[in-house]
Simulated scan of single mutants.
Amino acid sequence: MEGKTTKELMKVLQEKHGINIQKDKQQDLLNMGYFHGFKGYRFIKKSENRIPYRNFEEVIAIYQFDKKIKTIFYSSIMQIETALKNITLDTVIGLGSADFTFVYEHLLNDYKKHRPGSKDFKKKMKNRLELRNIIYNTISYNYRMNQSIIQHFIHKNKPVPLWAIFEIISLGDFGFFIHSLNVEIRTNIAKSLSIYSTVHDQKVRVLEDMIFLIKDFRNAVAHDGVVFDCRFQLTPPPNRCVQFLHSETAMDNITFETIIDYVILHVYLMSKIGSPQKDVQRLKRSFAVASERLRKQIPRSIFVSIMGGDAEKKFTLLKRL
């Protein structure tokens, strides 16, 4: 299979895609990569939604904006993940034990509210059993990988406590854990975070909705995926989560179709876990600066396609959160 040199790919950009690229941009294309870079940034969400680039400088602008977003959000995502796990752990231990067997038998029993053998009972039981398998498989994997925390307990013939399990499970699996808890425990956790509403969240599911939204974003950031257009979103957020955020933030049209909605969610969660105000302000300021830089570097029509037609209104309201 024949490949192309960077010079040849520059010619492809010029002749096939109609993108003007100067000779002095060869290094930029080489650093970005034609396939990881240009091919990943030539459309918004779907390959048919091509961005009408006029020159390579506009490609670089969106590429750098995407990189900046990942840099800005990485630490806040880690902060949110750690805090949510610790708050959940504190609530669970306060109700009994940090032993996973105890938690599994007495707290991860959301299935009990359904009639045995019913469709909902079977679904919840299936989820519970899958969660147990995920956790035991994760413990096994980390033991094989010489993870010191896991080996410490196993070599002492002791059960791996919940706090150590939380250290090794993914954010998505943690969301699955929250999902499988009974409603009383979910309510206690939600109330401890002040993420609770009898109007918009009667089944106490909004917290796990938020975790799954953050999870998709986190995975894209961790694996250097494209994030500027939210293509990482695997499933749309449930209406209850959207309505809850509308009520809490006084912002309309939160759809998670544009990256600014993820900023809103991050700022909201950071306030709930008690992040220092300077960290919250730094996040908002950094994103605003990066967005304004992008706005000046690309045509307004492309900027609106990326950020949404109500971006300016959301930026204004975001300052008040």
Rank of each mutant, 00 (worst) to 15 (best):
M1L: 03
E2V: 09
G3M: 09
T6Y: 14
K7Y: 13
E8P: 03
L9A: 07
L9Y: 11
L9I: 14
M10P: 05
M10G: 07
V12M: 10
Q14D: 08
Q14S: 12
K16N: 09
H17F: 15
G18Q: 08
I19G: 04
N20V: 10
N20G: 01
N20T: 14
I21A: 08
Q22Y: 09
Q27Y: 06
G33F: 04
H36D: 15
G40T: 10
K45G: 00
Y53C: 04
E58G: 06
I60T: 03
I60M: 12
Q64S: 13
K68D: 10
I72P: 12
F73A: 10
S75C: 09
T82D: 02
N86I: 00
I93V: 15
Y104M: 07
H106Y: 10
L108A: 00
R115D: 02
G117E: 10
S118H: 09
S118W: 11
D120T: 11
K123R: 12
K126L: 10
R128M: 08
L131Q: 09
R132V: 11
N137W: 05
Y143H: 08
R144G: 10
I149K: 11
K158S: 03
I168A: 06
S170N: 05
I178R: 02
N182S: 06
E184S: 11
I185Y: 02
I185T: 15
I185P: 00
R186V: 02
R186Q: 13
T187P: 02
A190H: 01
S194I: 07
I195D: 03
S197M: 05
V199L: 08
V199P: 00
Q202R: 10
E208C: 06
M210Y: 15
I214R: 05
K215R: 11
D216S: 11
F217V: 08
R218S: 13
A220Y: 13
A222C: 11
H223E: 06
C230F: 02
R231H: 13
P238N: 11
C241L: 09
Q243S: 06
T249V: 05
T249Y: 04
M251H: 02
I254R: 02
T255V: 02
T258M: 08
I259S: 12
I260S: 13
I260E: 14
Y262G: 02
H266I: 03
M270W: 01
M270A: 00
I273C: 03
S275L: 00
Q277T: 05
R285F: 01
F287M: 10
E292C: 01
L294C: 04
R300S: 12
S301P: 00
S301G: 00
I306Y: 02
M307D: 01
M307Y: 07
K313T: 15
L317N: 06
L317E: 06
K319V: 11
R320H: 06
